[in-house]
Design a protein around this nucleic acid. Structure first.
Lengths: 162, 162
DNA sequence: TGGATATGTTTTAGGTTTAAATATTCTAAG
DNA sequence: CTTAGAATATTTAAACCTAAAACATATCCA
């Protein structure tokens, strides 16, 4: 065993502890950014973050999405989506529509007003994130993205189940 | 304008869009891991993630913490901590104690049973995270940690407020 | 002493999951 | 073709988490 390896305390950290540290950092960063974005959405647009997420999903699909599609895309439970949509419908930002072929399903779409409001929100949102992550340049962002890419998909699907 | 610049689509992405992509990846990774950990805590130990977080904070402070200290450390609202502690007290995992000097404050401590249970949870938890992040080796973890380190602190404090 | 500050709880509104209930569609045996 | 059972889509209910604001005490300090 060589001496240099003993000198560096970081190298001495077990890998499992190092991964735990990494997880703590990811979690804290995500929560901090999320809290900041949530505050600004509430103050500037009187919308919650989950409501914004739903509108962002719908904006990409002019033909609308079913409740289950929304639930899967946003990685939240189906029962959860119901309540969020209820409130967005009350605010007239989205509408529920019955599809022609399947009477079990419900199609949710942005209203004209919903699309208009979301466009303004999305523009501001991108500016906020750009500002909050201003310390990352293009290369760093790309590296980080590559590291994180696919991680979420791997975990809840074929991921290594202990 | 040179032709090569037009050919690479990634290089053509505005930095602000790249940062938005990065944020989406961080958020999705955090949510996926968090959901997985939450499931396993519930199934194996019948504890919620916030309850686990509180116990983890208390385990580091044998003399206990006040409600406000807990609230600040965990970055959640003070009114929130009340409910979590209420349920942990019901389960006899923590106790509320009145400090001698300040009659406003309340000291919260792990019970003997709380410490014993948490020790088992923490061991399993570290194994889960180690497994979920198994694709990261020590060097990658260190690089990622350095990138994320301090980010959360900078955001909610002196961070660039738009 | 009296106003400002600090600590904790309660209330209100919304978000979240799981489990169960309801309704519809699909499938395959008869 | 019919129909029973499985699978799918959504909602509802219960329990918990969350932030913000209002509130009640208690402490500090000028």
């Amino acid at each position: 065993m060589n001496v240099a390896a003993k000198i560096k305390p970081k190298a001495a950290l077990p890998l499992s502890k190092q991964r735990l540290r990494l997880w703590i950092r990811i979690l804290r960063a995500a929560r901090a950014i999320e809290a900041e974005v949530r505050d600004r959405l509430r103050i500037n647009f009187d919308v919650t973050l989950p409501q914004f997420d739903v509108m962002a999903a719908l904006e990409r699909k002019p033909d609308g999405m079913t409740m289950t599609e929304l639930s899967r895309f946003l990685m939240v439970s189906n029962g959860n989506v119901t309540g969020i949509i209820d409130r967005l419908v009350t605010d007239k930002l989205v509408v529920r529509q019955a599809p022609a072929n399947d009477r079990r399903a419900i199609i949710v779409k942005l209203t004209t007003r919903g699309l208009k409001d979301f466009t303004a929100m999305a523009k501001a949102h991108q500016g906020w994130v750009d500002n909050l992550l201003s310390e990352f340049d293009a290369a760093e962002a790309e590296t980080l993205i590559e590291h994180l890419d696919g991680l979420s998909g791997r975990i809840r699907n074929g991921g290594t189940r202990s």
